[in-house]
Write a protein that binds this DNA or RNA. Structure first.
Lengths: 133, 133
DNA sequence: GGCCGGTGCGGGCATATACCCGGACCATGA
DNA sequence: TCATGGTCCGGGTATATGCCCGCACCGGCC
């Protein structure tokens, strides 16, 4: 057997390269891909608690809390308390919706570029493999 | 067109899951997969400067500098100055070699598990796609 | 020999990420 | 009612990552 590459390292490197692509495209909107993705998840689940958001995004709850607070400082989301006073409830602000609307076409551009580079089968295979990981 | 998933987000999530796998396996050695991977790169290129290491690992030079300093604090690598007094030269310590030797079989185990899960074609397709990104 | 552009490093700043812990709150059972 | 266990959040700590800036050093050119 020839020595295989470290799948984790290869994945991380590709992840960083890809993130840089998206970040550059989203630069005019003032958010990075992690923030944009989080905004989209919030829009889909809104109103949503931090714990639920963490579950959806497969992120540690404390990570979600911190990332959400960054969006709050940016004025893109609002944090409030739910009926259950333990829960922190997240909702999008008008500026948050605007950022999503402005970012969407830019994001689409990157998605299209990637699909063009990998081809339909390539994309399909990639998604299948990532899902199995 | 059905809406496609954000390739970057999917990739990052898979990357985190995978890292957790490797980290758990390497736990007895006391290093995480990022550190283990960096140690392997150092062993392959040793003696090597930080800038060169960053180029190899596709990481920002300041990132490599910091990560290497963590390994230095752990006693796994030694940092010195080269003939060119601007350069910081990295070499493995005995403890660094030991960590690599101990980690290798654990790392192999995770690699094998992944190959078993994806199958030969799956792994091949994944690597091809990641390379093209 | 001294100036000057180029190169390499480290520090500052910001975000992303995870683990652990303590405090607040809720619901249930005694 | 109230004690108990479970849930949720936030803060502390540590690593990972990138960008920018200033400092030190090197080599070539005058």
């Amino acid at each position: 057997m020839t020595s295989s590459p470290c799948y984790c390292t290869v994945l991380k490197a590709a992840s960083r390269r890809l993130a840089a692509l998206y970040d550059e495209a989203l630069e005019p909107v003032g958010v990075n891909i992690a923030q944009f993705s989080l905004l989209r998840r919030i829009r889909r689940a809104e109103p949503v608690t931090l714990t639920e958001l963490g579950r959806i995004a497969e992120l540690d709850r404390s990570t979600i809390g911190r990332n959400t607070r960054v969006l709050e400082r940016m004025g893109l989301v609002a944090l409030g308390r739910g009926a259950d006073h333990r829960e922190a409830v997240v909702t999008l602000t008008a500026a948050g919706h605007k950022a999503l609307d402005e970012g969407e076409p830019l994001w689409d551009g990157v998605q299209d570029a990637i699909e063009a580079r990998l081809g339909n089968t390539g994309v399909m295979e990639l998604c299948t493999a990532l899902q199995d990981l």
